[in-house]
Design a protein around this nucleic acid. Structure first.
Length: 311
DNA sequence: CTCGGCACCCTGAGGCCTAA
DNA sequence: TTAGGCCTCAGGGTGCCGAG
């Protein structure tokens, strides 16, 4: 009964508790089918792993007709938990952004390690890709889960992705306004989020708030563009829709709502890439890359000389 | 105008109970 | 007997609507 039930750290004794560590699991057929669907989704997202439980949830809802309610979500997180503990799903496939660490002490294991580190730094040398761009570009997304997938695309264009989930606080919006107001060029914001009244009203509220702060700070107000999900995309990709909750009173009523995760990773990254190529000056980026490469070579050569002379 | 209630984002844990 | 559905709690946010 209690092979896993003793918590010796707190001294408490649980008669029944959850399994600890890796644990065998014999799910019922229905749950096994859910695990199978999750594995399909993970295979589909292979290039963008790890993903969050929330992201898996919305993909299940968007593409597999999984019920979109909190109970279904709870069921999913339980299943993900057990399936990972049973090694049916790789632990690394699912991400939890809340775990964080601070402090500690790195240091160098000696002068040689220092030079190694300098060489690595020089090896990574480059000029910011934003250099010489006629306008600044940012991407705002609603859910943190899509962040790594989109950042993979935007970094080729020198564009930063911001999660508007963390954008709802006054501090974050003021930070964004400060960043935008400081620029000497105008800013274009590409936004990605759910097509539902809440998603739209959150974006509208954030855009209006940031714009108000920017104006106050004497900067150029940003141009906010809705990149996805749009009604056009719903039609074009035949996306799964869900009726709006009757109790959701935010904004105007919508007959059908669509989660951003209803778009497949390929569709989403394709939309992002096309929009970025459109708004960013790619010739200038290529020129910056060439210049960076020359300077990087020079820096590495200089380091080799310093190291050789025992400086 | 203020505030309660409902919506949203994010995740994890324990306990009760029932169906297989 | 046991897996797992369902409920509740914990913890930190925000926006909008309608009632008082």
């Amino acid at each position: 009964m209690d092979t896993a039930g003793r918590n010796t750290v707190s001294g408490r004794l649980y008669t029944r508790t959850r399994v600890r560590g890796f644990a065998p699991w014999a799910p019922k057929p229905a749950t096994l089918r859910l695990v199978e669907q999750i594995r399909q989704i993970l295979a589909e997202y292979e290039a963008y792993l790890p993903m969050t439980a929330r992201q898996v949830f919305y993909r299940l809802v968007g593409a597999h007709g999984y019920p979109k309610d909190e109970r279904a979500y709870d069921r999913l997180t339980e299943t993900l938990n057990r399936a990972r503990r049973a090694r049916l799903i790789p632990m690394e496939a699912i991400r939890d952004d809340r775990a964080a660490s601070m402090g500690g002490d790195a240091g160098y294991a000696g002068p040689e390690a220092f030079w190694e580190s300098m060489t690595a730094a020089a090896d990574n040398y480059r000029r910011p890709l934003t250099e010489g761009q006629p306008r600044a570009v940012e991407m705002w997304i609603e859910a943190a889960g899509m962040m790594p997938m989109l950042a993979d695309i935007t970094k080729e264009f020198g564009v930063t992705v911001y999660c508007s989930g963390g954008f709802e606080s006054v501090a974050a919006k003021h930070d964004a306004a400060h960043r935008i107001a400081r620029r000497h060029v105008a800013t274009t914001v590409l936004s990605i989020g759910d097509l539902d009244p809440s998603g739209l009203s959150i974006l509208d509220a954030a855009a209006a708030d940031v714009t108000a702060f920017v104006t106050e700070l004497g900067g150029k107000p940003p141009t906010v563009v809705r990149l996805a999900v749009t009604p056009k995309q719903v039609a074009r990709y035949r996306l799964q829709t869900a009726p709006q909750k009757r109790t959701d009173h935010r904004g105007a009523h919508m007959p059908a709502t669509v989660q951003a995760e209803a778009l497949s990773p390929d569709q989403l990254t394709g939309i992002a890439r096309a929009a970025l190529a459109d708004v960013v000056d790619t010739d200038t980026i290529a020129a910056v890359r060439r210049r960076s490469e020359l300077e990087r070579e020079q820096l590495l050569a200089a380091l080799r000389t310093m190291r050789g002379s025992g400086a």
